[in-house]
Simulated scan of single mutants.
Amino acid sequence: MRARAKGRVAELEACVAEQGVAGSVGIAHTRWATHGVPAQRNAHPHISGGLAVVHNGIIENYAELKAQLQALGYEFTSDTDTETIAHLIQACWKGQIGGAGKTGEPAKDLFSAVRCAVAYLKGAYALAVVSEQEAGCLVVAREGSPLMLGVGEQGHYSASDASALLSVTRRMVYLENGDVARLTANAIELVNGAGEPVGREVVTSRLSADAVELGDYRHYMQKEMFEQPQALGNTLEMLSRAASLQPGIFGADAAAVFAQVDAVLVIACGTSSYAGMTAKYWIEQVAGLPCNVEVASEYRYRTSVPNPNQLAAGSTVFAYPAAGQGE
């Protein structure tokens, strides 16, 4: 069964209750559509036959895949790139698409169909797929967008962020680009981009469930705003207890790297980009380095001029580009 609603999670909860959705395996997503207006028809999950998909990221070649799938008789009901993924997996499962885009042998199961389909995708994605034909099974895949597994005592889980899993487990498996995994209540089967079985380390998250609870706040943005003084205070307390600010706190090679930096690039979206614009003034005033701010969703699509001595800062990561790299 599928339940979708436009608006807040409360609307979706009411829809789920009304429809009586229940089961041992499920996928869910809250997302403002990348393609198309925010509307129920564009909301995840997207379906094809008896399978359903949720997706983080953006598929850059979805238009050509959509045309190919329409030629095979698939009908589209949304404006999204994600619906293309659902139909593509179905086509692989039926053998309508195989090697080099030609008709091939039908995939033997959902796991094989997803592995077939992701070979055609260009862009970034974190996928979760379920099917009526394989009850009790969840298949996930990652390329570019973050995705991790949760190892619990009574089942296995997947999410794009560790905080989403803390209510069920603190034991996490961080997937790498190209990984595809099949999850059941009792087992995890994992292959890399080459189709080879691999094992990934199970790590225990240090986050506490309290850190991600909404508490008395109306929404998480409000919670983050009110927690900023405490977060800043904790950071300053750590630094003030030291005789000086040592580059080593940023990594073992930071001292050598910082000595070469002659510019800073901040890449971020939304409110993070606004914060970056403010930081630009501070960085140029305090550090004496030129600083540029780029909108992350647009930066990857333009031809940039790489600076091997530029420090690149994202909203969640810091990176020092190697020579010849632009991001």
Rank of each mutant, 00 (worst) to 15 (best):
M1L: 11
R4F: 04
A10D: 12
E11V: 06
E13F: 09
E18N: 10
E18C: 11
S24E: 14
V25D: 05
G26V: 08
A28P: 08
G36N: 03
V37P: 15
P38H: 08
A39R: 15
R41H: 13
N42W: 05
A52D: 01
L65W: 00
A67D: 10
E75G: 09
D81W: 00
D81Q: 02
T82K: 05
T84V: 15
H87V: 01
K94R: 13
K94I: 01
G95V: 03
Q96M: 09
I97T: 01
E105K: 14
E105Y: 09
K108I: 11
F111H: 02
V118T: 10
Y125C: 00
Q133A: 15
A135K: 14
L138M: 07
A141M: 03
A141P: 03
R142N: 00
M148K: 06
H156A: 05
S163K: 15
V168D: 08
V168S: 12
T184E: 08
T184H: 09
A185H: 13
A187E: 12
V191A: 03
V191I: 11
N192C: 05
G193Q: 04
R200V: 03
V202Q: 11
S205A: 12
R206E: 14
A209S: 11
D210K: 13
D216W: 11
Y217F: 15
H219W: 05
H219C: 08
M221I: 11
K223C: 04
F226L: 14
E227P: 08
E227I: 07
P229C: 02
R241N: 09
R241F: 03
A242R: 14
P247S: 08
G248P: 01
F250W: 12
G251P: 05
D253S: 12
D253E: 14
A256G: 15
F258N: 06
V266L: 14
I267E: 01
A268H: 04
C269T: 03
C269P: 04
A275R: 12
G276Y: 04
E284K: 11
G288D: 10
E294R: 06
V295R: 06
R300Q: 02
P308L: 01
S315M: 07
Q325W: 07
